[in-house]
Design a binder for these strands. Structure first.
Lengths: 250, 250
DNA sequence: CGACAACTTGACGGGCGTCAACCGGAGTGG
DNA sequence: CCACTCCGGTTGACGCCCGTCAAGTTGTCG
């Protein structure tokens, strides 16, 4: 078995990619050998801008990021949040032009992988391509859940659902327990993610507090009643596809 | 150049996959050689059910299909519509358990491709895997636009936007001009796709008619003022990624 | 011609948006 | 050490977009 190099910035990503199935030593080696450039970024920095044609893919090493789009008349909608280990613009591997923005929520660190080298590895190592493809399928599943969330849940369960998702992903990214996580979002950003206004988000957060479902202190969320929050949200984690896939073997 | 077999049910899909870049003759041969079983389906038939672990992928040969999810308390949200040539559950290639439902909107025809054989081709023919991966990335892009649509547009532009998308995809699927297409949806289904109620959808459709933006006759939509509809919708087609990609060549 | 689904219309109500004022903490500079 | 500023959070009053309910109407298929 290949000794893993914990010091490679790609190791975090590799661990996430292997969540659904081991790669061979050759696959790991090829992936870890990708050329990268690390980069320190500040809250608010753009990682990708709509219309860009970036020549590299970004991997989030630390900090929080988010994707968002805007309507013609300037309304913003956040479409996803990203934690350590997430690939931020995997789609740039195959799609030329970015159709949305990716921006840092907090200070953090990311590394950039040149598209050309990345594509080469994908073409030569089918299992690596497959793991990355799977990753983008899970992203897509999360987007579908978000459509359901903003389309068919009322404000309270909508926000509760988002909190459940973030807690669950926080835990599965190895950052801590799901019921005690960082939420480095202003209420306006929370509103942009849920299709509400910041005023209403404020009222709903308070009501969730009164119900004993969440405790807020600064940008930290504690969930004293996880089952209750889940019930209000109608949350089940299946759409995150976190379990190993035990998928059909060829 | 490989002579294409117009009679293969996979030919429609191949043409769509090659929209963004030619495959080699070997790639085409491998894809067209996939074992398939054709199937006639009726409006309302389920193609995939949430929780299923299907052993094949479905390709839509004719008719309309849609995907939908439900909240814990039974609210339905449609998350996408599908036309001839679309792969209906590509994600079953890599994900074990379906997290949503796929159902026929009209009578139609589909063909099923066994997951095992399909995966084998993907592992052996990197370019085929890449084309399919690209297809799921475009799906994901459409989901993001839907999040924006239900999250941040009012009822009128929301419905206008959906009509613009369907018209555009109708045309690019080779079914006819974008401003004159079939819309085999009840107003309740339209409501489930836009996060509204059927009553309100009814009123908005009428108002779009009064504005001279659309004409409805039965399940047919004519758009006398496409530019106007686009303006009301705030629609730009970039998120559909229809242009050839001219992507970085390795 | 009866039955059923889909569409249409009107009256009414509520969840959430809008507007605006105020508060509170963190950073800044004198 | 204290004003000043600024951003984000909080609160209240009010109103609108869209949901709800319920009663028709139309169209289609047996």
């Amino acid at each position: 078995m290949l000794m893993l190099q914990d010091n490679s910035p790609l190791y975090t990503a590799l661990r996430k990619l292997e969540r659904h199935g081991r790669l061979s030593d050759d696959d790991r080696r090829a992936f870890l050998a990708l050329p990268v450039t690390e980069e320190r970024v500040r809250a608010g920095d753009h990682v990708v801008r709509q219309g860009d044609q970036p020549q590299d893919c970004a991997l989030l090493l630390s900090g929080f990021a988010f994707r968002h789009k805007m309507t013609a008349d300037g309304e913003r909608q956040i479409v996803s949040f990203h934690l350590r280990g997430d690939m931020l613009d995997l789609q740039q591997l195959l799609l030329r032009r970015a159709d949305h923005n990716v921006q840092m929520l907090t200070d953090g660190q990311l590394c950039r992988i040149p598209v050309i080298a990345f594509r080469k590895v994908c073409r030569e190592r089918a299992a690596v391509a497959e793991a990355l493809w799977l990753d983008s399928l899970i992203d897509a599943s999360i987007f579908r859940e978000w459509v359901l969330n903003v389309g068919r849940r009322d404000a309270r369960s909508r926000i509760a659902h988002l909190l459940c998702e973030l807690g669950t992903r926080w835990e599965s990214a190895g950052l801590g327990p799901a019921d005690h996580f960082e939420l480095p979002l202003t209420q306006e950003q929370l509103a942009d993610a849920t299709g509400l206004t910041s005023v209403h988000v404020n009222r709903v957060l308070q009501s969730l507090g009164v119900l004993g479902l969440i405790d807020r202190e600064r940008r930290l969320i504690k969930v004293p009643d996880w089952a209750g929050l889940q019930r209000v949200a109608g949350f089940t984690a299946d759409y995150l596809h976190q379990e190993p896939q035990e998928s059909v073997r060829t």
